[in-house]
């Protein structure tokens, strides 16, 4: 289960990266701002989930 959650968290962060790259390709302007923040939020959620999973793993191996 933890492995599935890790894969989902990584997928979320990667999707966030893809969103940023695709939006950035349109140029940095007002129209890009919501997309850029969306990408950043996706990466942040992925990293947050990964940090929680890492915390659980540390607890399991201790």
């Amino acid at each position: 289960m933890l492995a599935v959650r890790t894969v989902l968290a990584i997928a979320m962060a990667v999707c966030g990266g893809v969103v940023i790259v695709r939006v950035a390709a349109l140029g940095f302007r007002v129209e890009s701002a919501p997309g850029l923040i969306l990408g950043i939020a996706m990466i942040a959620l992925g990293v947050h989930r990964l940090s929680l999973i890492a915390g659980i793993r540390r607890g399991m191996t201790r």
């Binding site: 919501p34 997309g35 923040i37 969306l38 939020a41 996706m42 959620l45 947050h48 929680l52």
Partner: peptide, 19 residues
């Protein structure tokens, strides 16, 4: 832990739906 996950999830849904 739960609040930050909730905040980011809701923000992502709102921005993604509107875009």
């Amino acid at each position: 832990r739960t609040s930050i996950a909730l905040i980011l999830t809701i923000l992502i849904f709102a921005l993604a739906y509107s875009n």
